[in-house]
Amino acid sequence: MPEDALKSHRLRELREFLMSRRARVTPAEAGLPAGGPRRRTPGLRREEVAVLAGVGISWYQWLEQGRDISVSPQVLDAVARVLRLSNAERRHLYVLAGLNPPAPEPAPDHGCEGMRRLIDAWMPYPAHIMDRYYNCVMYNDAAGWVLGMRPEITQNCIVDFFTDPLYRSRSHSWEQNAHTVVAQFRAMCSDNPDDEGFRAVLAELKAVSQEFTALWERRDIKDAGVIRKELDHPLVGLLCVESTALKVPARPDLTIVLHTPLEEANTTAKLEWLASPQGRRGAMYPVAG
């Protein structure tokens, strides 16, 4: 479709979208008097939206008519507030108005309940969830048995990667994966240059690990992706898994990391055994490594 036709389509959609959202907001919801039986508009009037949003009446009329006018994020946010738009609707408004949409906002915390069910359903394979700063939010039992996740470590996945002796002793692929982990972390820091949370994690890593600091100074960058891990478990021996980091649209601040068994070393059967009553009993006793 030609560019002019796409623009015309976008502006038509903008007009229809704003009219539909305005019609569903009652005066009472906007803090206005109902207006009595003579009120014909099912929702808010255009001039009411303009006044409540703090914009000119003519400007808002032009916006809703789909005219090609200049808009700013601040004004669109004011309109979105008056029209009681959800986060998804607000981002859609930005797109229709020709602006880059804002980043998705996290859903309420109850979304974590569904993610807990997800990683528990991933059993007997390891899975965990971390926030944008690599802090571990939750993990399933298999992540404890296989990866050594436990309450007494820092609960920050990249800090523990460099400082947890238990994980280090089990990982055959530590040196190879360390380069990838640091390059991916640098990419995250690069995307958020003014975020003090990343700065705090970086400062901690430099303070506790010379190996991290040396890799950081290489300035390598990598996008998040699949990482192969080889682990020597004290009860079942070699395990070969593939970790995949998945973003959750409803919780863009969180990442789910799922570990999938590879065909080598009979990994699937070993993980299933570790989750069995016999394997669980074996994990109760101290084992080297």
Rank of each mutant, 00 (worst) to 15 (best):
V159T: 14
G35E: 06
S209F: 02
R81Q: 14
R117E: 11
S86R: 10
S86L: 08
P165K: 03
S72C: 03
E272Q: 15
G36V: 03
R91Q: 09
R39D: 13
K7E: 15
P108E: 03
A283F: 02
P42D: 01
D4C: 06
T41K: 04
V25H: 02
K222W: 02
S190V: 06
E13A: 13
E211K: 12
H110V: 14
C240R: 12
S20R: 14
T213F: 01
R40Q: 13
D220Q: 15
L44G: 09
P42Y: 00
T267W: 01
A97C: 10
V241N: 03
I69G: 03
K229I: 06
R39Y: 11
V287W: 08
A78I: 02
S243F: 05
L6M: 07
L99E: 08
G148N: 09
G197K: 01
S243K: 09
G43P: 07
D141H: 08
A107I: 07
L254D: 07
D253H: 08
P193G: 07
Q176C: 01
R186V: 08
T213D: 12
D131G: 06
K247E: 10
P234G: 00
D120C: 04
L83E: 09
L254E: 04
I119V: 10
K222L: 15
Y139F: 13
F198P: 06
L202Y: 09
R21V: 09
S169T: 14
V248F: 00
D4I: 12
V137P: 08
E152D: 15
S70P: 01
W174P: 08
L231M: 13
T213W: 01
P286E: 04
R39C: 10
G31I: 03
K247M: 02
A183G: 07
V25T: 04
F212P: 01
K7Q: 15
Y125F: 15
A142N: 01
L63K: 11
P126D: 04
F198L: 09
A53S: 05
G31P: 06
E230K: 08
W174N: 10
W145D: 15
R45M: 05
P33V: 00
S209H: 04
N156E: 02
P106G: 01
P234Q: 01
F198W: 12
W122Y: 05
T213H: 05
L18I: 08
R116L: 14
E272V: 15
E89Q: 14
L215T: 07
P252S: 06
R10L: 13
Y285K: 09
S86Y: 01
P234Y: 00
L235G: 07
L85F: 03
E152P: 05
A214D: 14
E64M: 10
I129S: 10
S173M: 11
T154E: 14
R81A: 12
E230P: 00
W122G: 06
L239G: 02
A269N: 14
V248S: 05
